[in-house]
């Protein structure tokens, strides 16, 4: 039931551990299935090695992140 509603609204889930935007049932990076649909702020890291933002947030992998997860 919850999944149907989620699919309808296309709610994007993020991992509560690493704040990555996750597609599917569990986080591809940390393996956690502790996901949340309640998040705000969006960050796309393309090149973490050259990004000051990524360095400040301790992000080592490129990808899409949420700034705040509830």
């Amino acid at each position: 039931m919850v999944n149907v509603a989620a699919a309808k609204k296309k709610l994007v889930q993020v991992c509560r551990e690493c704040h990555r935007v996750v597609e599917g049932e569990s986080c591809a990076v940390c393996g956690s299935s502790n996901l949340s649909t309640d998040w705000t702020g969006y960050l796309v890291v393309i090149d973490p090695k050259r990004s000051e933002i990524a360095k400040r947030l301790n992000i080592a992998l490129p990808g899409r992140y949420a700034l705040k997860v509830r």
Partner: peptide, 18 residues
Amino acid sequence: QVVAIIVPDELKGYVLVE
């Protein structure tokens, strides 16, 4: 080249690119 993009919820209608 863009290394990162921030989309703060507080800043409607803009994105910030690094």
